[in-house]
Amino acid sequence: MNNEEMLKDSIRELIYNVIKEEQGKQEQIKINAGVDEIKTCDNSTDDGFVEDVTVISMQDTFCVPNAHDPEGYMKMKQSSSGRLGIWRAGPRPLSKAYVRFIADHAAAQGAVWSEVDQDIIKELGFICLESISSSKAEYLKNPNTGKRLSPESVEIVKQNANKNVNVQIVFADGLSSSAIEKNAKDVLPALQQGLKSLGLTYATPFFVTNGRVAVSEEIGELSDADVVVMLCGERPGLNSQSSLGAYVAYKPTIGMEESRRTVISNIHRSGTVPVEAGAQIAELCQSMIKHKISGVELKLI
């Protein structure tokens, strides 16, 4: 067990104790309050937390009893995040594996179908835009609707676009709102700091609801920045619900080829760390501005 986990455990214990103490006091009050009160509280006894099933990694999960070679099994498991060594009840998975799956799938679907927390949008000072998708369902059924801005949003971009900046940063929920919630707070300051230290200017970032990567092309045309950095929520998997992708392009234009974008994918806590990604993207911007190109062509230099 590492230090962080030990710390978490002791904090958890502390919280249990406090809650138990509080409960004890509450119970006492209720008993004192008389018979009527007790009736309504019959099943409200809370004995603390059910274990958080999402904390342990798949690599460390192991449920096979009397395994032929448990050490060898665990060693092999380190090379895969697959659901391995999860055992069974008859032919079916154990309850432990089943509820873990349920939790991971719920988080993955939640990432797609939820909206980004407004507090985070406010905190980061995003200017809010939306695509022409009228709903999540339409957005998923017709990806093209996520690639264009609503007429109101076009006006907002026109009003706010600073014609004389090097970089326009854009966030979009894409297929994972939680990717924005989990990573934007780290990636944005790192990126802005990086740009500043390289002597590049940037405008207030936009955030597009129901936005796909290509919506950055329209923003690029309207804002006239040299480089548009699009940070978009990636399609969630069971093991990574909050992964962000950076799609960076020099002077993007509507309907341009995918090959003109430079991509850094898999930005999340256990992938490319957000702070590092921010610095990398800043350097990319500098290189694109210097060579006046992006994507595959930039790679060839």
Binding site: S81, G82, R83, P91, G237
Partner: peptide, 25 residues
């Protein structure tokens, strides 16, 4: 099938390894 239906490379879910035996039975 894949372990518990989780394809960790293509990021989608198919049937799980447990499911075939269940279906056969």
């Amino acid at each position: 099938t894949a372990p518990m239906g989780d394809d960790i490379m293509l990021n989608y879910q198919l049937l799980g390894n447990h499911d075939l035996q269940t279906i056969l039975e």
